[in-house]
Amino acid sequence: MRLWGTIAVVLAAVSGCAGEGGEPGATETTGEWSFPEAATVALAPDKAAKLQAALDKIVADQGLESGARGVTAAVVNDRWVWSGAAGRDAVGTPLRPTTAMGVASITKTFVAAEIMLLVKAGKVDLDAPISTYVKHKLTENGATVRQHLMMASGVPNYLPDDYGRMDKAIKAAPAKHWTPEQALAYDTAPVVAPGTFSYSNPNFQLLGLLIEKVTGQPLATVLRRDLATPAGLKHAAFQDGEKPQPPLAEDTNPVCGPPDGYLPCRAVASLSAASAGLAADAPTVAHWGYQLYYGHVIPQDLVDQMTPNMGRYGLGTMLFEHQFPPLLPSYGHRGEMPDHTSLLVVGSNVSVAILLADGNKQVDTTMTQFLAALQPLLT
């Protein structure tokens, strides 16, 4: 198991604003949007065939690092939407556009958005030490909430030996529910002074604890109420507080054993809930990207803080300055699991999600090839 692995735009309208709701952390968004709402009209069949052909080629190239045995993809913009599928999952089941996969670290975009809503509501200070909200041995170095969001907290990622011990525990009880504290107990590398970028999943497990302590509600409940429901995401599951809806892309993770309805199993889903627990289909991921980064689910001023025009990582957001023509610059997140690889890229008023029912793949190259087919349809 190896789970873990800004755009500069001219705003055409005033940003939305958020008001605090009656429940802890609850918000609603009002006002004019900087970008149009996502379209609901399907792409014309002749044009859709060109995108389907691009997916078919990904499967035909499955022997390459950029190919895959199965792929789903979705595109959302303000003129049309499209989704498609090709190939099969790890056990040979044909994929559909609505097949859910474990999208791993794309989860971080939800956790970051929720933190920003709590900041807007005056419940969290981005520049306060995270220890203000979460008391833990990993929060004793004075790192701020912002530094945890931007992977500069000094909290290390799990070491290979940590993963090995975790794998043994999962294999012994794949249906067990893990608490965040139980998962964090496996992080044995020393904490260092904050300030230097280092990608680390425990950052977001601590942020998940922050959300639960500040709101007094389970993480899945909060993310559903404040983000997924307002964004209209019916096929996102915040595991293991929620169970994914079929169809599911099964995998063959050796530590998990037979399928148990979670992706890849309840133990893995729960121990990584705030860092990599999301399961969703490609249309859901693409729609979320459009809703989030174009100010339709949190106010645009909060989005601007998540996507600074500098560096390679914002707040819970990967910054892609040069990788993905024609969507330049762009932002989003990758997700990696043993049998599922995912990538969300948002830019130029377009959101694109690619989910591969395969692991250890060069999904950036896959996305680049898909965007070459997509580009003529955006003009």
Rank of each mutant, 00 (worst) to 15 (best):
G257F: 00
A104N: 08
N201T: 08
A85C: 04
L219K: 15
V14M: 03
T188R: 10
K135F: 10
Q375S: 12
Y158R: 12
Q182V: 08
P24R: 00
A373Q: 13
H148Q: 14
D56C: 08
T6A: 14
V71Y: 06
A68W: 05
P190Y: 01
V10W: 07
P308S: 01
D56H: 08
P254H: 09
G295R: 00
E23Y: 12
N309H: 13
S66R: 12
L223C: 07
E114T: 07
R2H: 14
P180M: 11
V76S: 11
D125N: 11
N77M: 05
T72P: 06
A8H: 12
P230V: 02
V214Y: 04
E37H: 12
S105V: 13
K57H: 15
N253S: 15
I58T: 15
N253C: 08
A49F: 02
A172M: 04
A13C: 14
G332Q: 01
A143M: 11
E336L: 14
L377D: 10
E28T: 07
Y313F: 05
N201V: 13
A12K: 04
T139A: 15
L51Y: 01
A42L: 15
A53H: 08
L207I: 05
K168D: 15
A172I: 08
S34Q: 06
P36G: 06
W80G: 10
A12S: 12
N157T: 07
Y290H: 03
T196F: 02
A282L: 12
P299V: 01
R224G: 08
Y163C: 01
K137E: 15
V111F: 02
P202C: 07
A269M: 02
